[in-house]
Nucleic acid binder design. Sequence first.
DNA 1: CGGCTGATCGTG
DNA 2: ACGATCAGCCGA
Length: 202
Amino acid sequence: MEERQRLSGEFFARDGITVARELLGKILVHETKLGIVRGVITETESYMGEEDKGAHTYGGRRTQRTEPMYHQGGTSYVYLIYGMYSCMNIAAMTEGIPQAVLLRKVEPADEQSRERMERLRLEGAKGRQNISTIRKHLADGPGKLCIAMGITRKDNDIDMVESPSFYVTEGMEVLEEQIKAGKRIGIDYAEEAADYLWRFYL
DNA sequence: CGGCTGATCGTG
DNA sequence: ACGATCAGCCGA
């Protein structure tokens, strides 16, 4: 298989909106218990530091949980949501500036990845869902994305610029006009910030 | 397809 | 107590 170039520290050292837009079409790579799984990123959201009412770091909340958001661009931030799902983010900017990009959706990058993602999702669903439902909604949400790519909180606070098993590579070319924007999901409490068009998708 | 709701637990 | 969610169930 053709090896693609890994994204550099410079890529992630930019603001969270630029990184969220530029991540579309790139390939998230994770070594799982079933082997390597590759997913093309097709939906992201930006969380913009201490001023963003929708962000965990709003008001400068630097706690054990939010610490990875403060780390250098390219650091993973994986947290537990609603008691049972994980959300996967990648920090943007530099140490001390807590911007991050939530990964909301991926598509399998190849057939082997598709098979592995289906198996991981079947396992994660514990028999509550049939294979056709899983195929239709393989990784189309932050929780499902994490299950499909085998991402857990063990993968929190990883330097994705250096890690041998968790990183992002170049992928498909994306033109500006292919990028759509909308309101972020699930942050109705964030007042005016709930209306910012900081969700990006293809 | 759209709206509503229970599940479940680490964090502050 | 409270979620950067999901899946099942309902009605259209």
